[in-house]
Design a protein around this nucleic acid. Structure first.
Length: 274
DNA sequence: TTAGGCCTGCAC
DNA sequence: GTGCAGGCCTAA
């Protein structure tokens, strides 16, 4: 059981962050751990006095843009969080970057495991070019056509869906959920997927992500949005974490396997390879 | 294509 | 105390 910020969690953070920062001015930036920021000597002082103008997201990457186009990218990695709190609140452990707002609030980036980080770009265009160029379409926008090229390529369904190049935003939890829902075998070769299977897959991805966002994301252990509220989607998980338990569709015992260092949970009965 | 490393908290 | 989880990059 682990906490994993995938697309729905990042989207929840983005949505709940906006009211705290849009139109608000930066009063100062404190970097408590320099190597969490890239570049290490990013000119964050340049943000002081600027207002935040917007946020956007691609896959698991969350961008925050200032009025003069300076852009920050937050990547939450495995354990990253963004908290919006009164500046007087005590600063918790593993708080690496603090953006002090002029209204007396802090936006704090915390990440115990430091798989995540903060990136600085002088302009939005530079951020988008460098950080989304290699990503596939955002999973919320994916269409069947985005996977048409799979026909002539190699690889297994699970791995290709996890790769952010094919589709951006899915992690271990939502891939397992989507494959269970679409009744597709994780080890199926992508070159052999039939059109109707692809349609089921895309439909399942959109449905799972949509339902998760609607319930505020998945809280397995310590995921919270910026207002410290947990998400409720864990209650709806049907595959992830259910190895050894009966399949909710056919009652067969769910199996777990490890491929390329990742745990996959699936139902051997209703996710058969064809 | 797969294994290893990064890093920490928690279960055992 | 050991080991495992995970996203993502690098190396064999």
């Amino acid at each position: 059981m682990e906490f994993v910020p995938e697309l729905p969690e990042v989207e929840e953070v983005r949505r709940t962050l906006e009211p705290f920062i849009l139109g608000k001015r930066v009063a100062g930036v404190s970097v408590r751990r320099a190597d969490v920021v890239t570049p290490v000597r990013a000119p964050l002082r340049g943000l002081v006095g600027r207002r935040f103008a917007g946020t956007f997201r691609h896959g698991k990457k969350l961008f925050v843009e200032a009025e003069d186009s300076q852009t920050l990218l937050f990547h939450l990695g495995m354990s990253g969080r963004i908290d919006c709190v009164a500046a007087a609140e005590p600063v918790g452990a593993h708080t690496h970057v603090i953006i002090h707002m002029q209204d007396g609030r802090d936006v704090r980036f915390r990440d115990p495991r430091r798989f995540g980080g903060v990136w600085y770009f002088a302009t939005r265009a530079e951020a988008v070019e460098k950080e989304t160029g290699k990503l596939g379409p955002d999973a919320l926008q994916c269409r069947v056509e985005d996977f048409a090229h799979w026909r002539t390529t190699r690889g297994r369904l699970k791995m290709r869906l996890l790769s952010q190049r094919d589709i951006a935003g899915l992690g271990n939890i939502y891939v397992d959920e989507a494959l269970w829902q679409a009744q597709l075998h994780p080890m199926q070769r992508v070159g052999r997927i039939k059109p109707e299977q692809l349609e089921r897959m895309v439909e399942a991805i959109l449905d799972v992500l949509g339902r998760s966002i609607a319930s505020g994301g998945t809280t397995l252990r310590d995921y919270r949005n910026v207002a410290n509220q947990p998400g409720a989607f864990a209650l709806q998980l049907r595959a992830y974490g259910r190895a050894g338990l009966p399949c909710l569709r056919c009652d067969t015992v769910m199996r777990s396997s490890t491929t390329a260092g990742r745990t996959t949970v699936f139902c051997p009965q209703c996710q058969k390879q064809r």
